[in-house]
Amino acid sequence: MPTVILVRHGRTTANASGVLAGRQSGVLLDDAGEQQVRVMAERLAAVPLRAVVTSPLERCRQTAAAIVAAHPESLRASRDAKLTECDYGDWQGRALKELAKEPLWKLVQQQPSAAAFPGGESMRAMQDRAVAAVRRHDRQVRDEHGEDAVWVAVSHGDIIKSILADALGTHLDQFQRIVVDPASVSIIRYTDARPYVQASNTHAGDLSWLRPAKRSRRRVSPDAAVGGGAGPSPTGTRS
C-alpha cells in the first residue's frame, strides 16, 4: 500500500494567542508558522509525491500550497472536508484558559471517546470520518499510482492525533498521549496486514528514504520484521 505523510498546518495567530480556532474562517499562519511551513516543505521536496489532499480551512491550504510549490512536477492540492478541523461547536473561538475551567474539559482530557462538544461533533465522530477519509484516499492513490506511491494529507492537530491513534491500535481515550505540533510530519504506511507508523511529530531530518525503491522481483512481506528489520537502504530509498 502507499505511504501517507500527515502534515499539520503551521502555527497560526490563534495558536499563538491561545484561542481554539476550530472552523473559523480567516485564521492564517503567523510569521513563525510561515517559516515552519517553509522548512517542512523543503524536507518534502526530496520525496516524489503523487497527491496532496488538504483540509479546506485557510491555514491548511496555505500549508499545502507551500508543499506544492516545492515540487517542480505538476502537483495540485485537492480539498476534502472530511479532513477539516473538529467541530468544537460552542467552544470555537474561546480562549483555552477559559475552556480549561469547563466540566467538559476533564472528559476531553481523560475520556475523549465519550466527549461531544455542545453544538458541535463528538470526538468519536471526528476520528471515524478522518480515518475513513485517509484510508479512502490511500486506496485511490494505490489504484492510480501503485503500491509504492507517497502522498500527503494536510490537516489539524486533533485530526492527525486521532488518525495516528487508530494506526497504532490505540483507543481514542489514549490519543491525548500523542503530540502533533504545528508543521510536523508523521508517516503511516497501510498494508493488508496492519498499518505501520513510520514516524510521528518530526520537525527535521532527511525524508529521501521515502523515495520508492527500484522494482524488484522479490515480494515485500507485509509482516513485521522480527528484531526490527534492516530499515531504509543506505541510498535513501525504501527496500
Rank of each mutant, 00 (worst) to 15 (best):
V47L: 02
P118G: 07
V68G: 05
I160N: 05
I160R: 12
V150R: 02
P182A: 00
K161W: 05
R124A: 14
R194Q: 02
P56W: 14
T235G: 09
Q92K: 08
C86A: 13
S155P: 05
Q62E: 15
E147A: 06
Q111P: 00
E147M: 00
L168C: 12
S162P: 01
V197A: 06
P48K: 03
A193I: 06
L172Y: 02
C60I: 11
S216L: 09
R219K: 13
G236K: 01
T237M: 07
Q35K: 11
G146M: 09
R59T: 03
D143S: 13
P72Q: 12
A14H: 09
V131T: 03
S55D: 08
K82A: 15
R194T: 12
S233Q: 11
K101F: 06
K97C: 15
A213C: 02
L75V: 07
E121I: 01
T84V: 06
R23Q: 09
A14P: 11
E144W: 10
V152H: 04
L210D: 08
C86K: 08
R211A: 10
I163T: 00
T84K: 03
D173R: 10
R61V: 14
M123H: 05
E102N: 11
C86N: 10
R23L: 06
F117T: 03
Q36L: 10
P112C: 04
R139P: 04
P112R: 11
R61F: 01
Q35V: 09
S186I: 05
H171D: 14
Y196A: 15
P48N: 10
R11N: 07
T3W: 05
V7K: 02
S200Y: 00
H203W: 13
P234R: 09
S155L: 08
L172A: 07
T12L: 05
A70P: 10
A193S: 07
L83H: 06
L172I: 15
G93T: 14
R142N: 05
M40T: 07
